[in-house]
Each structure stands twice: as C-alpha cells, then as structure tokens.
C-alpha cells in the first residue's frame, strides 16, 4: 500500500489532529481528576453524555442557539458533577480507591438510565451552528469548518489554559502539590475538601465541554457514555495516569494512529490502539509520561 503522496499524508495528519482534539477534551477531565483525587472516574463518560444532551435541550429552548450552549451546558454538568462529588464521593475518600471506582461505575449505570427517562432512548442530533456547516480549503484540501474553527481551537486553548492554570498560578501550585502528596497539602493548611470539589468541578466542566463541542458531530443516544469511556481510558492510560501532558500526548497518538493507520492497514484499525497500549504498558506500566507507580513491594 505504498505510494501515498505527501499531501495525502498531510490531510490525514490534520484529520488526526481533529480526532485528537476531540478525545483530549473529554479525556483531560478524567486525567485531572485522577491526578488530584486519585479517583478513576467511570462516570466521566456520563458527564460527556450530559454535556451533549444539555446542548440538545438548550437548542430546543431557542435562546440564542448553539453558541451560548457551549458554556451553559458544561456549567450545567458542573452542577451535576459537584452534586456527585459532595453526595457520593466525599464520604468515601478514605476507602480503598477501588471502592471509589466501583461507586463511579454504579453512578454510570444510574446516570445512563436517567438520560433515558429524561430524553428517551431515541437517537438525537444537534445541527452545526450556522456558517460552519461547510468546508474550508487549506493547501487545496478541504476541511470541515466546524472542526477547524471550533473543535481544534477549543482543544488547543484547553491544553494551554490547563497548562497555564497548573503551572503559573497559585491554585495550580497547590493542585500540582496535591498530585504529588495529598496528605502533605492537607497538613500545610490547604482546604483539601474545597480543593477536591473544585478539581472535580473542573473535571466535570471539561467532560461537559467535550460533550458539548462534539455534539454537532455525531448522534446523541443513551449509551454514548459507554462508547466513549473505553476510548478515554485508553488515552489516559497510554499517556500516563494523572499526567496532563501525557493525556495530550496520548490523545495525539490516538488520533494520528487512527487517522494514518487507516491508510496502511484498514482491516485492523480498531485493534491498533490496543496493541500499542499493551506494548507501552509492558515497557512502561506507568504510561508514556506518568510518574513511577508503586508495585506490590
């Protein structure tokens, strides 16, 4: 299957960036929450789903259409997220992390059925905002305007915003310290409860934002949470649990592998990423950019 011209590869490369931006938006919240709280949040996929469905509902209200929904839907998800954290997670932070994992799995089941009760089981769809339905040419190749002018910029600015927030602000210092040593941060007089709730809220916001931004690109249905959760797990584990840079790298690899892999071995596209993950995990169990993990001894 050789003989691809350079511009084909370039087009697929840019497409890979779109895929990466989309998956990064959703996965970053999961990674952030794991880094600080140590909770691998199964329900993150539900936040993504709620973000998408809130956009759908908002557009139904006809109060300004899609653009305000990009902010309002994630904020609505933040409310759900904070309620989840305060009611369910907060009482069991002291328990084994695996109990938290199981708890969030229970929440996934509940959130999923609630979506069915509210929005029904049908496929729903959100139209692209006016003016961005078409394509935009770059170097003679056509790209979708929405991905180019909404998805990619939001993805990149999320990376930047998280980087600046974590590395160049006081709060960021505390958060980063908390990823290193939670007890120590508490001992230093930081309000850990508030910190956890805040970080969880940011995580939920990112999940909701991911759902909102991706909503016009696909169908909305109960079960989209399960479809996305395995993908974002892959990305986060590949990049390194709790490492924000790792998540970005994982997303980039995921997007490009998918995009370029199709050109070379189309039959195996759905297995690629798993093969890569196994190779990475065998060589570097902590993921590409993750910190050293504890072993059994």
């Amino acid at each position: 299957m050789a003989g691809f011209t350079a511009d084909v590869l370039l087009v697929q490369f840019i497409n890979g960036l779109f895929i990466a931006a989309g998956i990064y938006l959703v996965a970053s919240g999961l990674s952030l929450v794991f880094g600080v709280l140590g909770v691998l949040n199964f329900a993150h996929g539900s936040f993504y789903m709620y973000g998408a469905f809130f956009v759908f509902t908002w557009i139904g209200f006809e109060l300004g259409g899609f653009w305000p929904a990009l902010l309002i839907a994630p904020l609505a998800v933040v409310i759900v997220g904070v309620a989840t954290e305060v009611v369910f997670l907060r009482p069991i932070y002291k328990a084994d992390p695996l109990y938290q994992l199981l708890l969030t799995y229970g929440l996934v089941l509940m959130f999923g059925d609630v979506v069915k009760l509210i929005w029904g089981a049908d496929n729903q769809s959100v139209a692209r905002p006016a003016g961005l339905e078409g394509t935009f040419p770059i170097f003679g190749a056509l790209f979708p305007s929405y991905q180019l002018f909404v998805l990619l910029p939001i993805g990149i600015s999320t990376i930047l915003a998280l980087y600046l927030l974590l590395n160049h602000t006081q709060i960021g210092n505390v958060v980063r310290a908390a990823t290193q040593d939670r007890e120590m941060v508490g001992a230093l007089g930081v309000n850990v409860r508030l910190l956890y709730t805040g970080v969880f809220a940011v995580g939920a916001f990112l999940g909701g934002l991911g759902g909102a931004v991706l909503a016009p690109m696909g169908a909305l249905y109960p079960g989209m949470d399960f479809d996305v959760i395995i993908e974002i797990f892959l990305v986060v584990v590949l990049g390194g649990l709790g490492s924000m840079a790792g998540t970005a790298l994982g997303a980039l690899i995921y997007g490009e592998l998918k995009s370029l892999g199709i050109l070379f071995v189309p039959d195996l596209e759905s297995v690629f990423i798993y093969v890569l993950m196994v190779i990475v995990l065998l060589a570097r169990p902590q993921g590409l950019l993750g910190k050293r993990v504890e072993t059994s001894r």
Binding site: G38, L40, D96, P97, L98, L101, I230, F233, V237, L241, S270, V271, Y274, M277, V278, L281, P285, Q286, V293, E294, T295, S296
Partner: peptide, 22 residues
C-alpha cells in the same frame, strides 16, 4: 499484571480483558 497494585492492577486487567474480548 501481578506486580502492579490497586488501581494499576485493575486497569491492566481491564485492558488485557478487553483485548481477549476483541
């Protein structure tokens, strides 16, 4: 897998399990 503990063990077994499924 067995050298990893806690959440890492859970994730590794999940990943391998999913590969078996695939």
């Amino acid at each position: 897998c067995v050298r990893r503990t806690h959440i890492y063990f859970a994730i590794l077994t999940l990943a391998f399990g999913h590969i078996v499924y695939l």
